[in-house]
Design a protein around this nucleic acid. Structure first.
Lengths: 226, 226
DNA sequence: TTATTAATCAATTGATTGATTGAATAATTA
DNA sequence: TAATTATTCAATCAATCAATTGATTAATAA
């Protein structure tokens, strides 16, 4: 019982190590990118706008506390989330921040514009509708991200090309657009573009990691699945 | 889109603030106590073994990031978790730490002794069994914690008194013991004591906050529910 | 072998954090 | 009114953290 106190303390210190590792915007952003799939240090540094050395340090920090794992392939080191439970943790963190910080609401509103006007579709709904062939799933991310992993059957038209290539979409089906996750504007913008062209469109709720967990099929057009 | 970058950054910074607030063993311990119910600064300081000034500072920190709320009642300030989502976040943090840190396993083993020998009962199972009157629910925490909130119908026999008062329990029903949460040894010890006396006993999985969310009825013998 | 590239390491700097101390509020009681 | 109690504030100091820089380790290509 007396010894129990220090063990309890040690337990909380371990938990705190994990939480502390989450306590930096850059590391959270890196984790968000990793939630979409394995990435190399250089790619991650580019995505997050960090120097390679800095990104490397943050990644090693995440590695030390067990939030990510790494795999060496030639001269590349690929990082990935350690576990699905990390996605759950990031979701829970978002959940708390959204319900308790008014600041978040303000930012989300600014960032995502007419948020409420675009009621999103849940992964479950998407699953049943796409089984019936009722919807076209549209991935508006850049091709390289699409290749690294996307929803099965999704069409890839990057947002920049959407206006030009809108003819490729059949206008008699509702289009469900998605990009990187809940705070990615691309999908919002795509829905706006499509609606302006008279095509029924909605955004898919959540992000790739959540959909994977929810059971939506994910596929890859790997360049070299080494 | 260019402005989007800084908003995105700001969003991650808000999330990081929350995570950072979780990144200290003392604050996590305070949150664990708060998950059981509202407590005053002095009580929390005592429970966590901190000076009042130090506990106050940690609590104000948690308040600033929205993880707890406070209520002034006379000269006392009572703190409580801001929201149920905080319980979920703490659970997710535990989940990640348990699956990714080997160190945790070692500590839990040391702390909770023959952990696996005592398969716990889930809240759902408890609910159906107690409806049928099949089990006796035993709260082994000190009376003051019991009074502050306990499972409806639970009998309170603090662990220290259990050997002496074991006669108060009917030996023809299985006893389900609980204390403060998943890392509280009292319930483990109680199960050991009861089994030694020939009484079928198991531990209840999780902790009071989780049971509340799972729908188990919680009641209070308030001293003065002001 | 010698470049080149990807990633990490080591050292430095400035900034932030946590515990302690003593003083200051603010509500209650004598 | 003065004393007591619960809490918070303000200042301090040691410890830790994050970004930068330049050097170093591996793997690959010329």
């Amino acid at each position: 019982m007396t010894a129990g106190v220090s063990v309890k303390k040690a337990l909380f210190e371990q938990f705190a190590r994990v939480a502390k590792a989450l306590g930096h915007a850059n590391r959270l952003e890196l984790l968000e990118f990793l939630a979409q799939g394995e990435r190399s240090v250089e790619v991650l540094a580019g995505l997050a706008g960090l120097s390679v050395a800095n990104a490397s340090q943050h990644l090693r920090h995440l590695l030390r506390v067990g939030l990510v794992r790494s795999r060496k392939d030639g001269q590349y080191v690929h990082y990935a989330l350690a576990d699905e439970s990390v996605v759950a943790l990031l979701g829970a963190l978002r959940g708390v921040a959204e319900t308790t910080l008014a600041e978040i609401d303000r930012l989300v509103d600014t960032y995502l514009k007419a948020k409420d006007a675009l009621e999103p579709l849940s992964p479950d709904e998407l699953l049943s509708r796409s089984r019936q062939g009722l919807v076209t799933v549209l991935d508006v991310r850049p091709p390289e991200e699409y290749r690294a992993g996307h929803l099965a059957g999704a069409v890839n038209i990057p947002l920049a090309d959407l206006k030009r290539r809108v003819g490729e979409l059949t206008s008699d089906q509702e289009v469900i657009a998605y990009c990187r996750g809940p705070y990615c504007v691309l999908a919002y913008d795509a829905v706006a573009v499509l609606r302006a062209k008279g095509i029924a469109a909605r955004r898919l709720d959540g992000g790739l990691p959540e959909w994977r967990i929810a059971g939506l099929p994910v596929e890859q057009n790997a360049k070299a699945a080494s």
